[in-house]
Amino acid sequence: MSDPGPFVSTRGLGRVFDVSKPWLNRMIEREEKVFLTAAENVTFDIPRGETFALVGESGSGKSTIAKMIVGLLRPSSGTVTVDGVDLFAQGDLAGQTALRRRIQMIFQDPYASLNPRWRVGDIIAEPVRAFGLEADARAIKRRVGELLEQVGLSALDGIKYPHEFSGGQRQRICIARALASKPEFIVCDEPTSALDVSVQSQVLNLMRDLQRDLGLTYLMISHDLSVVRYMADHIGVLYLGRLVETAPRAALFDAPRHPYTRMLLDAAPRLDAFGRTAETVVGEIPDPIDRPSGCHFHPRCTHNDGTRCVGEAPERLDLGRGRAVACHGVEEGRIGEGRP
């Protein structure tokens, strides 16, 4: 086992949603079917024990990708492979079922992700029971207590209901539930965007500690660059369903290559920039149903050449050292490494 390869990898992952009106309306109003491409040709790898972050604004398809990677949503094209098992291939049901226990998810909204009618102990015990990880009720109870303590709550909290907890505590409960099946890979969909800053830091620190102690691999979905900078080893930037740039953390923040990454970094509010006005941002995110031709970013891009950028979708260009960019300007050498 010299090179086990990446733990998680996606190849050409894509998902198209049919957002047409009902059949009868289409017939009467003589409309075509309407499709939304939420994700298109998304390719990345996550090594074991690392954190990969997908960053993007609304319409970027980041949540769709997260759902496909945990198996909640079937891709329209491409593959997801976790530890050598293809999540959606025909005929490997046993492997896929075994894999399911090893993949878990932490959700964005700590108020909607816990069933309000269940006691916290039952919520956390459910995965333990479902996967048959503990034999009897007593062992399950003990395991639930351990899990609660592992996320910084008390074993006694198991008898309470979710509404008795604050947002941050609920997110801890969600983490405990995710850990209950002893997963190796956790997809975190905006885990702290609903939390306050002081509580967010508690949850982020907890997630990092757990990663270190349990050797977890994370896929983190976020719109917040500062959170991503704190958590991720590798970062992928999404724009309207396509991955425009992937790079190691330091490289991405210090020397972003894709014009959209640069814009995003400029737009992020900074704690030290008193009275600054971010002037570099132009235009708005287009409608994902009606995406611009060629490179989706070309209408907002200052490096738009007016021909190739408009007419041809840029391919993923491997720049080495874990970095890849999809941009004609970078490929042609028009956009250099230094920041403008």
């Binding site: 759902k67 945990v70 909640l72 399911r100 226990r101 993949i103 998810m105 959700f107 992700s113 479902a130």
Partner: peptide
């Protein structure tokens, strides 16, 4: 559509 239902789906229910 709530996330607790998705969480239940994730454990194979």
């Amino acid at each position: 559509e709530k996330e607790y239902v998705q969480a239940a789906r994730l454990i194979g229910l």
